[in-house]
Amino acid sequence: MRFTVRVWRQTGSEDAGRLVEYDVDDVSPDMSFLEMLDVLNERLTLRGEEPVAFDHDCREGICGMCGLTINGVAHGPRRATTTCQLHMREFTDGDTIVVEPWRAAPFPVVRDLVVDRGALDEVVRAGGYVSVSTGSAPEAHATPVARADADKAFESAACIGCGACVAACPNGSAMLFTAAKVTHLGRLPQGAPERDTRALDMLAAHDEAGFGGCTNTGECTAVCPKGIPLADIAQFNQDVLRASLRGAGGRPA
């Protein structure tokens, strides 16, 4: 197979950046999208040009490190699939493919296709945990958890933190990401004591990090490689409302 690949090149945050066109031939349909970029990079290196920088690590769809906007869609054309799990057989021989980084104000470009997603970690630090220090845990079977709750908590906990939801959202909102964590922990008895403060604190951190508000466009869930549902955002909003009605405040800073 042979492709024309138009790749976003940007040397750093100061540089304005531009799309640069490359021809990539001898592509096997069994290659993953990132392997196609590997091939391009090997050739660029031998030609004395700088290879394209892109993030990746596990290459099996679980670490959340990869993430490219391919032909305008976060993670590309295949539903529920991370960039690293996308294969070239999904494209047609001769296609032109446009590859860009995640675009969102809180995710500044580091270089080429690499962005800084540190803002997502900030949101978790605001309360995306259960406060239980090592050694203080009760026996695991002391609190049974209904299977439906455990399963639902798992589904939300499956978020890989890739940031595709933010990249896809016209408002640059990270509500799906934040809601997934609030829903995961809020659904379990272990997370219940901090349910109010968690929701309020994570929402405040989300807004402070510069993520936009949610207007229910649903673009986020459409590109989410793990299928986190919009219902999690509804749950999050409910938790925030509940916390406010109960007169809970955030945790003192």
Partner: peptide, 21 residues
């Protein structure tokens, strides 16, 4: 003790219908 710790942190391990691990 690892299992106890992880459950307390909210790790959603697989459970049976009775609610146990």
């Amino acid at each position: 003790a690892i299992i106890d710790q992880c459950v307390a942190q909210g790790v959603p391990f697989a459970r049976e219908y009775g609610g146990l691990l």
